[in-house]
Design a binder for these strands. Structure first.
Length: 235
DNA sequence: CGCCAGGTGGGAT
DNA sequence: ATCCCACATGGC
């Protein structure tokens, strides 16, 4: 292995700071943020029922979609008290669709949300989080590996490393000899080369997103990148 | 105007 | 297994 994933994590953390995912909107989370809007260093806490609702719905809404649109949507959910499975399922279809329209694929995403929320409600997973399994999540139409792992990690404190287009991009750019293909390949690669630590799983994925949105874009700003001298693809 | 965004499922090869 | 496509709005 060429990349030292621990070293890269430390460089990203020095550069971007703690990310405080998810950017929860609810009142009880405000005391987790400092003056710059970051969560305090310890981002691990026991989520409430409404935290889990917001994180899980956000994970679906952000599929292949800019986070700003999702954030706006979650703000409206809170505004209209859509903060629990019951409050979501009680609302008219068109009312919900009108809110989530801005996140794209809104007809599909409405169905995905209904499937996921009904699943949580039926099995009381928000109240009994230890019962939730990755396999059960993946059986839901609309929940793929990334969304399942995001929910497990950020809403349920499970040590599952989240892989997305950014994780694949940054890993393959840093080390052009990597021959990883599938989601599982990348997940194994990250998981086996970082400490077995929930805080690091939580921050690392968020830091990769931050770095890839700002620096390691499709058209990368290599001249601004703190990983420039460690990257095979730097130009 | 074109490209991109914290994917997923279904269908063809 | 792997590739290809539909799904769709908003930002830049």
């Amino acid at each position: 292995m060429k990349n030292n994933l621990i070293f890269i994590y430390e460089k990203l953390f020095e550069t971007h700071g703690p990310q405080g995912w998810w950017p929860l909107l609810f009142e009880e989370r405000k005391n987790f943020t400092d003056s710059e809007g970051y969560h305090k260093k310890n981002t691990i806490y026991t989520q409430t029922r409404t935290d889990r609702f917001e994180i899980s719905t956000g994970a679906v809404l952000t599929q292949n979609t800019n986070w700003n649109n999702v954030y706006s949507c979650l703000t409206d959910f809170k505004k209209y008290s859509i903060t629990t499975p019951e409050s979501f399922l009680d609302k008219d279809i068109d009312f919900i669709k009108n809110i989530i329209r801005r996140t794209g694929y809104y007809n599909q995403k409405y169905l995905k949300l209904v499937n996921l929320i009904s699943f949580f409600q039926k099995n009381n997973y928000f109240e009994l989080p230890e019962k939730l399994s990755r396999e059960a999540l993946l059986e839901i139409w609309g929940i793929g590996e990334e969304t399942a792992d995001s929910i497990l990690l950020y809403a349920f404190n499970r040590k599952t490393f989240v892989i997305d287009a950014y994780s694949k991009r940054i890993a393959s750019r840093l080390d052009s000899t990597l021959k990883l293909k599938t989601y599982k390949d990348y997940q194994k690669y990250f998981t086996e080369n970082i400490p077995d630590d929930l805080e690091i799983f939580n921050q690392y994925h968020a830091l990769i997103v931050k770095h890839c949105v700002e620096i390691c874009r499709k058209k990368p700003y290599c001249d601004k990148c703190i990983l420039f001298s460690y990257c095979d693809k730097a130009i």
